[in-house]
Amino acid sequence: MTILDEILQEKRREVEQLLAQQAVQQEKRPSRPSLFDRLYQSERLQVIAEMKRASPSKGLIAEGAEPVTQAMIYDEAGAACISVLTDAPFFKGSFEDLAAVANAVSTPLLCKDFMIHTVQIDRAKNAGASVILLIVAALTDEELTELYAYAVVAGLEVLVEVHDAEELKRALAIDAKLIGVNNRDLRTFEVDLQRTEEIAALFPFHEKRVLISESGIWQTKDALRVSKAGASAVLVGESLMRSESVTTAIQSLQVAVQEVVR
Protein backbone atom coordinates (compact mmCIF):
# COMPACT_ATOMS: atom_id res chain seq x y z
CA MET A 1 0.00 0.00 0.00
CA THR A 2 1.39 3.41 -0.99
CA ILE A 3 1.33 6.52 1.23
CA LEU A 4 -1.45 7.92 -0.97
CA ASP A 5 -3.48 4.72 -0.47
CA GLU A 6 -3.11 5.06 3.31
CA ILE A 7 -4.20 8.70 3.22
CA LEU A 8 -7.25 7.94 1.06
CA GLN A 9 -8.24 5.06 3.31
CA GLU A 10 -8.23 7.48 6.23
CA LYS A 11 -10.15 10.07 4.18
CA ARG A 12 -12.95 7.60 3.53
CA ARG A 13 -13.31 7.11 7.28
CA GLU A 14 -13.26 10.86 7.80
CA VAL A 15 -15.99 11.39 5.18
CA GLU A 16 -18.21 8.85 6.95
CA GLN A 17 -17.80 10.82 10.18
CA LEU A 18 -18.59 14.14 8.45
CA LEU A 19 -21.71 12.67 6.85
CA ALA A 20 -22.86 11.38 10.25
CA GLN A 21 -22.62 14.86 11.76
CA GLN A 22 -25.37 17.41 11.57
CA ALA A 23 -25.14 19.60 8.47
CA VAL A 24 -23.00 22.67 9.09
CA GLN A 25 -24.83 25.98 8.78
CA GLN A 26 -23.26 27.90 5.91
CA GLU A 27 -21.84 31.19 7.17
CA LYS A 28 -21.95 34.38 5.16
CA ARG A 29 -18.37 35.36 4.43
CA PRO A 30 -16.89 38.27 2.46
CA SER A 31 -15.68 37.44 -1.04
CA ARG A 32 -11.97 37.16 -1.73
CA PRO A 33 -9.95 38.19 -4.79
CA SER A 34 -9.67 35.61 -7.58
CA LEU A 35 -6.48 33.57 -7.39
CA PHE A 36 -6.59 33.00 -11.14
CA ASP A 37 -6.74 36.74 -11.81
CA ARG A 38 -3.83 37.35 -9.45
CA LEU A 39 -1.67 34.82 -11.27
CA TYR A 40 -2.68 35.01 -14.92
CA GLN A 41 -0.91 38.18 -15.97
CA SER A 42 1.49 38.74 -13.10
CA GLU A 43 4.96 39.91 -14.10
CA ARG A 44 6.52 38.10 -11.15
CA LEU A 45 6.35 34.53 -9.94
CA GLN A 46 3.73 34.48 -7.22
CA VAL A 47 3.88 32.52 -3.97
CA ILE A 48 1.11 30.39 -2.49
CA ALA A 49 2.34 30.17 1.09
CA GLU A 50 1.31 27.16 3.14
CA MET A 51 0.53 26.70 6.81
CA LYS A 52 2.03 23.24 7.41
CA ARG A 53 2.86 21.62 10.75
CA ALA A 54 3.83 18.16 9.50
CA SER A 55 3.92 15.77 6.55
CA PRO A 56 4.12 11.99 6.06
CA SER A 57 7.58 12.31 4.52
CA LYS A 58 9.20 14.79 6.93
CA GLY A 59 7.28 14.17 10.14
CA LEU A 60 6.90 17.22 12.36
CA ILE A 61 7.98 20.44 10.64
CA ALA A 62 6.61 23.11 12.94
CA GLU A 63 4.59 21.36 15.63
CA GLY A 64 3.52 24.40 17.61
CA ALA A 65 2.87 26.70 14.66
CA GLU A 66 -0.09 29.01 15.20
CA PRO A 67 -2.09 29.36 11.96
CA VAL A 68 -3.26 32.97 12.36
CA THR A 69 0.22 34.23 13.24
CA GLN A 70 1.73 32.36 10.30
CA ALA A 71 -0.97 33.53 7.89
CA MET A 72 -0.58 37.18 8.87
CA ILE A 73 3.18 36.93 8.34
CA TYR A 74 2.55 35.42 4.89
CA ASP A 75 0.02 38.11 4.05
CA GLU A 76 2.31 40.95 5.07
CA ALA A 77 5.20 39.35 3.15
CA GLY A 78 3.23 39.50 -0.10
CA ALA A 79 1.90 35.97 -0.61
CA ALA A 80 -0.66 35.82 -3.42
CA CYS A 81 -2.61 33.11 -1.62
CA ILE A 82 -2.48 31.29 1.70
CA SER A 83 -2.85 27.52 1.78
CA VAL A 84 -4.03 25.80 4.95
CA LEU A 85 -3.69 22.05 5.38
CA THR A 86 -6.83 20.67 6.98
CA ASP A 87 -5.85 16.99 7.17
CA ALA A 88 -5.35 15.95 10.80
CA PRO A 89 -3.81 12.44 10.86
CA PHE A 90 -0.95 13.06 8.43
CA PHE A 91 -0.45 16.85 8.40
CA LYS A 92 -1.70 17.94 11.87
CA GLY A 93 -4.14 20.46 10.39
CA SER A 94 -7.87 21.12 10.79
CA PHE A 95 -10.86 22.99 9.42
CA GLU A 96 -10.63 25.07 12.60
CA ASP A 97 -7.19 26.25 11.43
CA LEU A 98 -8.74 27.25 8.11
CA ALA A 99 -11.60 29.16 9.74
CA ALA A 100 -9.21 31.01 12.03
CA VAL A 101 -7.07 32.08 9.09
CA ALA A 102 -10.16 33.10 7.11
CA ASN A 103 -11.11 35.51 9.88
CA ALA A 104 -7.63 37.04 9.94
CA VAL A 105 -6.69 37.71 6.30
CA SER A 106 -8.47 38.73 3.10
CA THR A 107 -6.20 37.05 0.53
CA PRO A 108 -7.33 34.09 -1.59
CA LEU A 109 -7.45 31.08 0.72
CA LEU A 110 -6.77 27.49 -0.36
CA CYS A 111 -8.10 24.51 1.56
CA LYS A 112 -5.37 21.91 1.10
CA ASP A 113 -6.72 18.42 1.64
CA PHE A 114 -7.44 15.15 -0.11
CA MET A 115 -10.96 15.85 -1.36
CA ILE A 116 -12.99 12.77 -2.26
CA HIS A 117 -16.55 13.87 -1.37
CA THR A 118 -18.75 16.96 -1.66
CA VAL A 119 -19.15 17.13 2.12
CA GLN A 120 -15.48 18.12 2.39
CA ILE A 121 -16.06 20.92 -0.12
CA ASP A 122 -18.99 22.15 1.97
CA ARG A 123 -16.81 22.17 5.08
CA ALA A 124 -14.01 24.00 3.26
CA LYS A 125 -16.34 26.71 1.97
CA ASN A 126 -18.02 27.13 5.35
CA ALA A 127 -14.61 27.54 6.98
CA GLY A 128 -13.80 30.36 4.57
CA ALA A 129 -11.86 28.81 1.69
CA SER A 130 -12.10 30.48 -1.71
CA VAL A 131 -10.06 27.76 -3.45
CA ILE A 132 -10.04 23.98 -3.00
CA LEU A 133 -7.56 21.36 -4.17
CA LEU A 134 -8.51 18.34 -6.28
CA ILE A 135 -5.77 15.74 -6.74
CA VAL A 136 -6.18 13.85 -10.00
CA ALA A 137 -4.24 10.82 -8.68
CA ALA A 138 -6.76 10.43 -5.86
CA LEU A 139 -9.91 10.45 -8.02
CA THR A 140 -11.62 8.59 -10.84
CA ASP A 141 -12.67 10.57 -13.91
CA GLU A 142 -16.26 10.54 -12.66
CA GLU A 143 -15.29 11.76 -9.19
CA LEU A 144 -13.02 14.46 -10.61
CA THR A 145 -15.76 15.75 -12.91
CA GLU A 146 -18.41 15.71 -10.16
CA LEU A 147 -16.29 17.42 -7.50
CA TYR A 148 -14.95 20.05 -9.90
CA ALA A 149 -18.46 20.98 -11.06
CA TYR A 150 -19.78 21.00 -7.49
CA ALA A 151 -17.04 23.37 -6.32
CA VAL A 152 -17.48 25.75 -9.26
CA VAL A 153 -21.24 25.94 -8.72
CA ALA A 154 -20.51 26.67 -5.04
CA GLY A 155 -18.49 29.70 -6.15
CA LEU A 156 -15.07 28.25 -5.40
CA GLU A 157 -11.96 28.23 -7.54
CA VAL A 158 -10.30 24.85 -8.02
CA LEU A 159 -6.61 24.05 -8.14
CA VAL A 160 -6.33 20.73 -9.99
CA GLU A 161 -3.14 18.87 -9.16
CA VAL A 162 -1.31 16.58 -11.61
CA HIS A 163 1.93 14.65 -11.60
CA ASP A 164 2.33 13.25 -15.12
CA ALA A 165 1.18 13.66 -18.73
CA GLU A 166 -1.85 11.39 -18.38
CA GLU A 167 -3.07 13.32 -15.34
CA LEU A 168 -2.60 16.59 -17.24
CA LYS A 169 -4.90 15.24 -19.96
CA ARG A 170 -7.51 14.44 -17.33
CA ALA A 171 -7.24 17.94 -15.85
CA LEU A 172 -7.66 19.53 -19.26
CA ALA A 173 -10.64 17.28 -19.98
CA ILE A 174 -12.60 19.01 -17.20
CA ASP A 175 -11.34 22.41 -18.45
CA ALA A 176 -9.30 23.19 -15.33
CA LYS A 177 -7.92 26.74 -15.33
CA LEU A 178 -5.59 26.47 -12.34
CA ILE A 179 -3.33 23.45 -12.79
CA GLY A 180 -0.64 22.55 -10.29
CA VAL A 181 2.25 20.18 -10.89
CA ASN A 182 3.15 18.31 -7.74
CA ASN A 183 6.89 17.71 -7.99
CA ARG A 184 6.40 15.17 -5.20
CA ASP A 185 5.19 11.72 -6.17
CA LEU A 186 2.37 11.05 -3.71
CA ARG A 187 2.99 7.33 -3.93
CA THR A 188 6.66 7.47 -2.88
CA PHE A 189 6.95 11.13 -1.70
CA GLU A 190 10.12 11.59 -3.76
CA VAL A 191 10.59 15.12 -5.15
CA ASP A 192 11.93 16.16 -8.57
CA LEU A 193 11.52 19.64 -10.09
CA GLN A 194 11.87 18.08 -13.52
CA ARG A 195 8.19 17.17 -13.19
CA THR A 196 7.27 20.82 -13.72
CA GLU A 197 9.42 20.98 -16.84
CA GLU A 198 7.92 17.77 -18.23
CA ILE A 199 4.34 18.98 -17.74
CA ALA A 200 5.19 22.47 -18.99
CA ALA A 201 6.43 20.97 -22.27
CA LEU A 202 2.87 19.69 -22.84
CA PHE A 203 0.96 22.59 -21.28
CA PRO A 204 -1.41 24.67 -23.47
CA PHE A 205 0.02 28.08 -22.59
CA HIS A 206 -1.86 29.62 -25.52
CA GLU A 207 -5.11 28.93 -23.68
CA LYS A 208 -6.27 30.91 -20.67
CA ARG A 209 -4.80 28.63 -18.00
CA VAL A 210 -2.23 28.96 -15.22
CA LEU A 211 0.56 26.53 -14.31
CA ILE A 212 1.67 26.28 -10.68
CA SER A 213 4.72 24.38 -9.43
CA GLU A 214 4.23 22.63 -6.09
CA SER A 215 6.77 21.12 -3.66
CA GLY A 216 10.55 21.19 -3.61
CA ILE A 217 10.91 24.97 -3.96
CA TRP A 218 13.57 26.23 -1.56
CA GLN A 219 15.80 28.83 -3.22
CA THR A 220 15.82 31.51 -5.90
CA LYS A 221 17.43 29.05 -8.33
CA ASP A 222 14.42 26.74 -7.92
CA ALA A 223 12.03 29.63 -8.59
CA LEU A 224 14.00 30.63 -11.68
CA ARG A 225 13.95 27.06 -12.96
CA VAL A 226 10.18 26.62 -12.76
CA SER A 227 9.52 30.16 -13.97
CA LYS A 228 11.64 29.48 -17.03
CA ALA A 229 9.52 26.39 -17.67
CA GLY A 230 6.34 28.50 -17.59
CA ALA A 231 5.05 28.46 -14.02
CA SER A 232 3.18 31.55 -12.85
CA ALA A 233 3.34 30.59 -9.19
CA VAL A 234 4.88 28.22 -6.68
CA LEU A 235 3.21 26.54 -3.73
CA VAL A 236 5.66 26.53 -0.84
CA GLY A 237 5.22 25.05 2.62
CA GLU A 238 8.15 23.44 4.38
CA SER A 239 10.83 25.95 3.41
CA LEU A 240 8.67 28.87 4.64
CA MET A 241 7.70 27.10 7.86
CA ARG A 242 11.40 26.55 8.59
CA SER A 243 12.53 30.01 7.48
CA GLU A 244 13.95 32.50 9.96
CA SER A 245 12.71 35.35 7.75
CA VAL A 246 9.52 34.58 5.83
CA THR A 247 9.51 37.97 4.11
CA THR A 248 13.03 37.47 2.77
CA ALA A 249 12.20 33.91 1.71
CA ILE A 250 9.05 34.92 -0.18
CA GLN A 251 10.74 37.86 -1.87
CA SER A 252 13.60 35.61 -2.97
CA LEU A 253 11.08 33.46 -4.89
CA GLN A 254 9.24 36.34 -6.59
CA VAL A 255 11.48 36.30 -9.65
CA ALA A 256 10.49 37.87 -12.96
CA VAL A 257 8.17 35.64 -14.96
CA GLN A 258 9.92 34.26 -18.02
CA GLU A 259 8.14 34.53 -21.37
CA VAL A 260 7.36 31.03 -22.61
CA VAL A 261 7.26 30.50 -26.34
CA ARG A 262 5.38 27.42 -27.52
Rank of each mutant, 00 (worst) to 15 (best):
D87L: 07
L235N: 06
D164R: 04
G216L: 07
D185T: 07
V152W: 01
G128P: 00
K125C: 07
V234L: 11
R195S: 15
F95T: 10
H163F: 12
A233T: 06
D122K: 15
N103W: 09
V101K: 11
D122S: 09
P204T: 09
I121N: 03
T140I: 13
A176L: 04
A137S: 14
R184W: 10
V158K: 05
K177T: 11
A151G: 13
G180H: 11
A171E: 13
N126C: 13
I116F: 12
D185H: 06
L224F: 12
W218K: 15
F95S: 07
V131W: 13
L193N: 14
A100G: 15
A100M: 15
V101S: 09
A124P: 05
H163T: 14
A229S: 15
I199A: 01
G93Y: 04
A231M: 12
L168H: 00
A127K: 04
L224S: 12
T145M: 09
V210R: 05
L139M: 04
E214Q: 10
A127L: 01
V210Y: 00
A124C: 12
T118Y: 11
D192I: 07
T188A: 05
V210Q: 01
K228N: 14
D87G: 07
R225E: 12
L110C: 08
S94P: 12
C111R: 14
Y150K: 00
S232A: 14
A127I: 04
R187K: 15
R184G: 08
R195E: 10
I212K: 00
T145Y: 09
G180K: 13
D222K: 09
F114H: 05
F189W: 12
F90P: 06
S94V: 09
F189H: 14
D192R: 08
A137Y: 02
H206Y: 06
V119E: 13
K228F: 13
L147N: 02
V153Y: 07
D87E: 13
N183T: 01
V181Y: 04
D185A: 13
A100S: 14
L139E: 02
Y148D: 02
L178G: 06
K208C: 09
V105E: 14
F205N: 08
E166H: 13
I179E: 00
F91Y: 12
E197R: 13
K92T: 05
P108M: 07
R123P: 01
S106C: 05
L172P: 06
N126H: 11
L139A: 10
W218I: 15
S130W: 03
A171R: 14
